[in-house]
Amino acid sequence: MHPLPPAHSSSRDSFPLWAKVMMWVVVGSLCVTASALIAVYRYKHHLSQTFDDRKTVISQALPDRDSGHDTETPDEISGMQTILLLGSDSRGNPDDARSDTMMVVRIPEKRDSAYVMSFLRDSWVDIPGYGYNKINAAFAYGGLPLAIETIEDHLSTRIDHVIMVDFEGFKHVTDALGGVQVHNEIEFSLTNGEGTTDFPVGDLDLNGDQALQFVRERYSFIDGDYQRARNQQLYLKSVLEKFLSAGTLTNPSKITGVVEGLSPYLSVDEGVTADYLVSLVWTLRSLSTDDIVFFTVPTLGTELTEDGVSIINLDYERLEELADSFHNDTLDEYVQTHDLSEY
Protein backbone atom coordinates (compact mmCIF):
# COMPACT_ATOMS: atom_id res chain seq x y z
CA MET A 1 0.00 0.00 0.00
CA HIS A 2 1.48 3.30 -1.15
CA PRO A 3 1.44 6.25 1.24
CA LEU A 4 -0.71 9.20 0.32
CA PRO A 5 1.12 12.39 -0.77
CA PRO A 6 1.42 15.14 1.80
CA ALA A 7 -1.71 17.28 2.09
CA HIS A 8 0.21 20.42 1.07
CA SER A 9 1.65 18.97 -2.18
CA SER A 10 0.22 19.87 -5.60
CA SER A 11 0.69 18.91 -9.24
CA ARG A 12 2.51 22.23 -9.84
CA ASP A 13 5.05 21.39 -7.15
CA SER A 14 5.75 18.11 -8.86
CA PHE A 15 6.23 19.82 -12.29
CA PRO A 16 9.79 18.92 -13.40
CA LEU A 17 12.35 21.69 -13.07
CA TRP A 18 13.58 21.24 -16.64
CA ALA A 19 10.01 21.73 -17.90
CA LYS A 20 9.71 24.96 -15.93
CA VAL A 21 12.96 26.21 -17.41
CA MET A 22 11.87 25.32 -20.93
CA MET A 23 8.54 27.04 -20.42
CA TRP A 24 10.23 30.27 -19.39
CA VAL A 25 12.69 29.99 -22.29
CA VAL A 26 9.77 29.67 -24.71
CA VAL A 27 7.89 32.54 -23.09
CA GLY A 28 11.02 34.68 -23.15
CA SER A 29 11.69 33.83 -26.79
CA LEU A 30 8.14 34.73 -27.74
CA CYS A 31 8.48 38.06 -25.98
CA VAL A 32 11.75 38.80 -27.74
CA THR A 33 10.28 37.76 -31.09
CA ALA A 34 7.19 39.88 -30.53
CA SER A 35 9.35 42.86 -29.60
CA ALA A 36 11.47 42.34 -32.72
CA LEU A 37 8.37 42.11 -34.91
CA ILE A 38 6.97 45.28 -33.37
CA ALA A 39 10.30 47.04 -33.96
CA VAL A 40 10.36 45.89 -37.59
CA TYR A 41 6.76 47.00 -38.09
CA ARG A 42 7.48 50.42 -36.61
CA TYR A 43 10.60 50.75 -38.77
CA LYS A 44 8.72 49.85 -41.96
CA HIS A 45 5.86 52.14 -40.97
CA HIS A 46 8.32 54.99 -40.38
CA LEU A 47 9.94 54.49 -43.80
CA SER A 48 6.55 54.30 -45.53
CA GLN A 49 5.31 57.39 -43.78
CA THR A 50 8.55 59.24 -44.51
CA PHE A 51 8.28 58.45 -48.21
CA ASP A 52 4.57 59.19 -48.55
CA ASP A 53 4.74 62.40 -46.51
CA ARG A 54 7.81 63.90 -48.20
CA LYS A 55 7.25 63.09 -51.85
CA THR A 56 5.24 65.36 -54.15
CA VAL A 57 2.22 63.89 -55.90
CA ILE A 58 1.55 65.24 -59.39
CA SER A 59 -2.17 65.27 -60.01
CA GLN A 60 -3.21 64.09 -63.47
CA ALA A 61 0.36 63.13 -64.32
CA LEU A 62 -0.71 60.35 -66.69
CA PRO A 63 -2.65 60.77 -69.95
CA ASP A 64 -6.43 60.57 -69.84
CA ARG A 65 -7.06 56.88 -70.52
CA ASP A 66 -10.63 57.67 -71.61
CA SER A 67 -9.50 60.06 -74.32
CA GLY A 68 -9.09 57.35 -76.94
CA HIS A 69 -5.33 57.12 -76.47
CA ASP A 70 -4.55 53.56 -77.54
CA THR A 71 -2.52 51.57 -75.01
CA GLU A 72 -2.87 48.08 -73.60
CA THR A 73 -4.81 47.22 -70.47
CA PRO A 74 -3.04 48.19 -67.22
CA ASP A 75 -1.03 45.41 -65.61
CA GLU A 76 -1.18 44.25 -62.01
CA ILE A 77 1.93 44.49 -59.84
CA SER A 78 2.80 40.92 -60.85
CA GLY A 79 2.64 41.75 -64.55
CA MET A 80 5.07 43.73 -66.68
CA GLN A 81 5.63 47.27 -65.46
CA THR A 82 6.84 50.31 -67.42
CA ILE A 83 8.00 53.34 -65.46
CA LEU A 84 9.14 56.67 -66.86
CA LEU A 85 12.06 58.02 -64.84
CA LEU A 86 12.79 61.71 -65.31
CA GLY A 87 15.59 63.92 -64.02
CA SER A 88 15.08 67.66 -63.82
CA ASP A 89 16.53 70.78 -62.24
CA SER A 90 13.09 71.74 -60.92
CA ARG A 91 10.36 69.92 -59.05
CA GLY A 92 7.75 68.18 -61.20
CA ASN A 93 5.17 70.71 -62.35
CA PRO A 94 2.82 69.65 -65.16
CA ASP A 95 2.49 73.28 -66.28
CA ASP A 96 6.21 73.98 -66.43
CA ALA A 97 7.94 70.63 -66.76
CA ARG A 98 11.14 69.97 -68.66
CA SER A 99 13.58 67.15 -68.20
CA ASP A 100 17.22 66.68 -69.09
CA THR A 101 17.03 62.96 -68.28
CA MET A 102 14.44 60.57 -69.66
CA MET A 103 14.68 56.84 -68.96
CA VAL A 104 12.09 54.17 -69.62
CA VAL A 105 12.38 51.38 -67.03
CA ARG A 106 10.83 48.11 -68.19
CA ILE A 107 10.27 45.25 -65.75
CA PRO A 108 9.17 42.06 -67.54
CA GLU A 109 6.48 39.81 -66.17
CA LYS A 110 9.02 37.03 -65.58
CA ARG A 111 11.00 39.29 -63.21
CA ASP A 112 14.30 37.72 -64.29
CA SER A 113 15.72 40.97 -65.65
CA ALA A 114 15.10 44.70 -65.95
CA TYR A 115 15.77 47.17 -68.76
CA VAL A 116 16.58 50.87 -68.64
CA MET A 117 16.45 52.77 -71.94
CA SER A 118 17.48 56.42 -72.24
CA PHE A 119 15.60 58.80 -74.52
CA LEU A 120 17.94 61.63 -75.53
CA ARG A 121 16.30 64.98 -74.86
CA ASP A 122 17.05 66.33 -78.37
CA SER A 123 15.36 63.38 -80.09
CA TRP A 124 13.30 64.63 -83.04
CA VAL A 125 9.84 63.11 -82.64
CA ASP A 126 6.23 63.55 -83.69
CA ILE A 127 4.43 65.11 -80.72
CA PRO A 128 0.68 64.34 -80.89
CA GLY A 129 -1.19 67.45 -81.97
CA TYR A 130 1.95 69.56 -82.46
CA GLY A 131 4.02 67.92 -85.19
CA TYR A 132 7.75 67.26 -85.09
CA ASN A 133 9.93 68.82 -82.42
CA LYS A 134 12.45 67.83 -79.78
CA ILE A 135 10.92 65.35 -77.37
CA ASN A 136 11.68 67.76 -74.54
CA ALA A 137 9.21 70.23 -76.08
CA ALA A 138 6.32 67.90 -75.24
CA PHE A 139 6.61 69.06 -71.63
CA ALA A 140 6.18 72.70 -72.66
CA TYR A 141 3.20 71.91 -74.89
CA GLY A 142 1.23 69.65 -72.60
CA GLY A 143 3.14 68.81 -69.45
CA LEU A 144 3.75 65.26 -68.31
CA PRO A 145 0.62 63.72 -69.89
CA LEU A 146 1.69 64.78 -73.39
CA ALA A 147 5.31 63.78 -72.81
CA ILE A 148 4.14 60.35 -71.66
CA GLU A 149 1.75 60.02 -74.57
CA THR A 150 4.59 60.84 -76.99
CA ILE A 151 6.79 58.11 -75.53
CA GLU A 152 3.91 55.62 -75.47
CA ASP A 153 3.27 56.23 -79.16
CA HIS A 154 6.90 55.53 -79.99
CA LEU A 155 7.15 52.37 -77.89
CA SER A 156 3.66 50.93 -78.43
CA THR A 157 3.38 50.36 -74.71
CA ARG A 158 1.68 51.93 -71.75
CA ILE A 159 3.59 53.93 -69.15
CA ASP A 160 2.23 52.68 -65.83
CA HIS A 161 3.91 55.21 -63.58
CA VAL A 162 6.16 58.26 -63.67
CA ILE A 163 8.85 59.31 -61.21
CA MET A 164 10.53 62.70 -61.54
CA VAL A 165 13.73 63.27 -59.58
CA ASP A 166 15.14 66.71 -58.93
CA PHE A 167 18.87 66.55 -59.63
CA GLU A 168 19.50 67.67 -56.05
CA GLY A 169 18.12 64.29 -55.01
CA PHE A 170 21.05 62.55 -56.74
CA LYS A 171 23.41 64.44 -54.46
CA HIS A 172 21.59 63.51 -51.26
CA VAL A 173 21.23 59.83 -52.21
CA THR A 174 24.94 59.62 -53.04
CA ASP A 175 25.92 61.07 -49.68
CA ALA A 176 23.42 58.85 -47.83
CA LEU A 177 25.09 55.82 -49.41
CA GLY A 178 28.53 57.04 -48.40
CA GLY A 179 29.46 57.85 -52.00
CA VAL A 180 29.37 55.75 -55.16
CA GLN A 181 32.05 54.52 -57.54
CA VAL A 182 31.81 54.85 -61.33
CA HIS A 183 34.20 53.89 -64.08
CA ASN A 184 34.67 57.11 -66.03
CA GLU A 185 35.23 56.60 -69.76
CA ILE A 186 36.18 60.11 -70.89
CA GLU A 187 38.34 62.61 -69.00
CA PHE A 188 36.84 66.04 -68.35
CA SER A 189 37.08 68.96 -65.93
CA LEU A 190 34.47 71.40 -64.66
CA THR A 191 35.11 74.86 -63.28
CA ASN A 192 32.70 76.92 -61.20
CA GLY A 193 32.86 79.52 -58.44
CA GLU A 194 34.18 76.95 -56.01
CA GLY A 195 37.10 75.84 -58.18
CA THR A 196 37.86 73.08 -60.67
CA THR A 197 36.79 69.45 -60.38
CA ASP A 198 38.69 66.88 -62.43
CA PHE A 199 37.13 63.63 -63.65
CA PRO A 200 40.01 61.49 -64.96
CA VAL A 201 39.54 58.20 -66.78
CA GLY A 202 39.16 55.21 -64.46
CA ASP A 203 37.36 54.32 -61.26
CA LEU A 204 36.14 57.43 -59.46
CA ASP A 205 34.70 57.67 -55.96
CA LEU A 206 32.06 60.38 -56.15
CA ASN A 207 30.49 62.31 -53.31
CA GLY A 208 27.14 64.02 -53.71
CA ASP A 209 28.37 67.25 -55.31
CA GLN A 210 30.66 65.37 -57.70
CA ALA A 211 27.87 62.97 -58.67
CA LEU A 212 25.62 65.91 -59.47
CA GLN A 213 28.27 67.36 -61.79
CA PHE A 214 28.88 63.97 -63.36
CA VAL A 215 25.27 63.35 -64.38
CA ARG A 216 24.61 66.90 -65.57
CA GLU A 217 27.61 67.54 -67.83
CA ARG A 218 27.35 67.30 -71.61
CA TYR A 219 29.33 70.23 -73.06
CA SER A 220 32.67 68.54 -72.35
CA PHE A 221 31.90 65.75 -74.80
CA ILE A 222 32.04 65.65 -78.59
CA ASP A 223 28.80 63.70 -78.73
CA GLY A 224 27.12 65.73 -75.97
CA ASP A 225 23.88 64.08 -74.88
CA TYR A 226 25.04 60.62 -75.93
CA GLN A 227 27.88 60.62 -73.39
CA ARG A 228 25.76 62.32 -70.76
CA ALA A 229 23.21 59.51 -71.11
CA ARG A 230 26.00 56.93 -70.72
CA ASN A 231 27.27 58.71 -67.61
CA GLN A 232 23.79 58.84 -66.14
CA GLN A 233 23.41 55.12 -66.74
CA LEU A 234 26.80 54.47 -65.11
CA TYR A 235 25.74 56.50 -62.11
CA LEU A 236 22.36 54.78 -61.76
CA LYS A 237 23.95 51.35 -62.00
CA SER A 238 26.50 52.32 -59.32
CA VAL A 239 23.71 53.55 -57.02
CA LEU A 240 21.83 50.27 -57.47
CA GLU A 241 24.98 48.25 -56.77
CA LYS A 242 25.62 50.20 -53.58
CA PHE A 243 22.00 50.06 -52.45
CA LEU A 244 21.62 46.34 -53.11
CA SER A 245 24.85 45.49 -51.31
CA ALA A 246 24.70 43.65 -48.00
CA GLY A 247 26.30 46.64 -46.30
CA THR A 248 23.28 48.76 -47.15
CA LEU A 249 20.39 46.29 -46.97
CA THR A 250 21.45 45.17 -43.49
CA ASN A 251 21.95 48.71 -42.25
CA PRO A 252 18.63 50.35 -41.28
CA SER A 253 20.24 53.76 -40.79
CA LYS A 254 21.57 53.74 -44.36
CA ILE A 255 18.22 52.74 -45.81
CA THR A 256 16.54 55.43 -43.73
CA GLY A 257 19.09 57.94 -44.94
CA VAL A 258 18.42 57.09 -48.59
CA VAL A 259 14.65 57.38 -48.16
CA GLU A 260 14.89 60.61 -46.18
CA GLY A 261 17.46 62.05 -48.58
CA LEU A 262 15.61 61.24 -51.79
CA SER A 263 11.88 61.47 -51.05
CA PRO A 264 11.73 65.31 -50.76
CA TYR A 265 13.12 65.50 -54.30
CA LEU A 266 10.62 63.09 -55.85
CA SER A 267 7.50 64.00 -57.78
CA VAL A 268 5.34 61.04 -58.74
CA ASP A 269 1.93 60.06 -60.04
CA GLU A 270 -0.74 59.15 -57.52
CA GLY A 271 -0.09 55.40 -57.86
CA VAL A 272 3.54 55.55 -56.70
CA THR A 273 3.14 54.92 -52.99
CA ALA A 274 5.44 53.27 -50.48
CA ASP A 275 3.27 50.14 -50.62
CA TYR A 276 3.56 50.00 -54.41
CA LEU A 277 7.35 50.36 -54.37
CA VAL A 278 7.81 47.81 -51.59
CA SER A 279 5.62 45.30 -53.46
CA LEU A 280 7.48 45.92 -56.70
CA VAL A 281 10.92 45.62 -55.10
CA TRP A 282 9.84 42.39 -53.40
CA THR A 283 9.05 40.83 -56.80
CA LEU A 284 12.59 41.82 -57.89
CA ARG A 285 14.36 40.45 -54.81
CA SER A 286 16.30 37.83 -56.81
CA LEU A 287 17.76 40.34 -59.29
CA SER A 288 21.34 41.56 -59.25
CA THR A 289 22.77 44.52 -61.15
CA ASP A 290 24.10 42.05 -63.73
CA ASP A 291 20.47 41.37 -64.65
CA ILE A 292 19.80 45.05 -65.42
CA VAL A 293 20.46 46.11 -69.02
CA PHE A 294 21.12 49.78 -69.85
CA PHE A 295 20.90 51.11 -73.40
CA THR A 296 19.78 54.11 -75.48
CA VAL A 297 16.93 54.47 -77.94
CA PRO A 298 18.24 53.67 -81.47
CA THR A 299 19.29 56.80 -83.36
CA LEU A 300 20.86 57.83 -86.65
CA GLY A 301 23.00 60.62 -85.23
CA THR A 302 22.69 64.40 -85.08
CA GLU A 303 21.57 66.91 -87.69
CA LEU A 304 20.90 70.64 -87.99
CA THR A 305 17.40 71.77 -88.90
CA GLU A 306 16.79 74.58 -91.40
CA ASP A 307 16.65 76.91 -88.42
CA GLY A 308 20.08 75.78 -87.26
CA VAL A 309 18.79 73.73 -84.32
CA SER A 310 20.76 70.61 -83.44
CA ILE A 311 18.54 67.53 -83.25
CA ILE A 312 18.95 63.76 -82.93
CA ASN A 313 17.22 61.59 -85.52
CA LEU A 314 15.69 58.34 -84.32
CA ASP A 315 16.26 55.13 -86.25
CA TYR A 316 12.60 54.31 -86.84
CA GLU A 317 13.32 51.00 -88.55
CA ARG A 318 15.04 49.62 -85.47
CA LEU A 319 12.67 51.50 -83.17
CA GLU A 320 9.67 49.75 -84.70
CA GLU A 321 11.20 46.37 -83.92
CA LEU A 322 12.11 47.56 -80.42
CA ALA A 323 8.55 48.80 -79.87
CA ASP A 324 7.22 45.36 -80.77
CA SER A 325 9.43 43.82 -78.10
CA PHE A 326 8.16 46.34 -75.55
CA HIS A 327 4.56 45.63 -76.47
CA ASN A 328 4.98 41.84 -76.47
CA ASP A 329 7.22 41.70 -73.39
CA THR A 330 10.06 40.11 -75.38
CA LEU A 331 12.86 42.56 -74.65
CA ASP A 332 15.08 39.67 -73.57
CA GLU A 333 14.99 38.26 -77.11
CA TYR A 334 15.61 41.70 -78.62
CA VAL A 335 18.67 42.31 -76.41
CA GLN A 336 20.14 38.92 -77.30
CA THR A 337 19.89 39.56 -81.05
CA HIS A 338 20.97 43.22 -81.26
CA ASP A 339 24.20 45.07 -80.52
CA LEU A 340 22.99 47.77 -78.18
CA SER A 341 26.37 49.48 -78.18
CA GLU A 342 25.59 50.72 -81.70
CA TYR A 343 22.73 52.82 -80.38
Rank of each mutant, 00 (worst) to 15 (best):
L4Y: 11
H8G: 14
D13N: 10
P16I: 05
P16M: 08
A19S: 12
A19I: 13
M22R: 11
W24A: 12
V26T: 04
V27H: 04
S29K: 08
C31M: 15
T33N: 07
V40K: 05
Y43D: 06
K44V: 15
D53M: 09
Q60A: 13
P63F: 06
R65E: 12
D66H: 02
S67W: 06
H69R: 02
G79L: 07
Q81T: 02
L85Y: 00
D89P: 01
D89V: 01
G92I: 10
P94S: 15
T101K: 12
T101F: 10
T101I: 10
V104F: 00
K110A: 15
Y115P: 01
D126V: 00
P128Y: 00
N133I: 06
N136T: 02
A137M: 05
A138R: 03
Y141R: 05
L144D: 09
H154L: 02
L155Q: 02
I159P: 00
D160E: 02
D160Q: 02
F167I: 01
G169R: 03
H172M: 10
V173R: 08
D175F: 05
D175C: 07
A176L: 11
G178R: 01
V180C: 07
Q181G: 13
I186S: 09
I186T: 07
G193L: 05
E194H: 12
G195Y: 10
G195I: 11
V201E: 03
V201R: 01
D203H: 02
N207C: 09
A211M: 13
F214P: 01
R216Y: 00
Y219E: 05
S220D: 13
Q227G: 10
Y235C: 07
E241C: 14
E241R: 11
F243I: 13
F243L: 15
L244G: 11
L244P: 13
A246G: 10
A246V: 11
P252N: 03
S253E: 14
I255G: 12
I255P: 07
I255E: 15
G261K: 10
L262N: 09
V268G: 05
D269W: 04
V281Y: 13
T283E: 14
T296N: 03
T305P: 03
Y316N: 03
E317V: 04
A323S: 08
H327R: 11
H327Q: 12
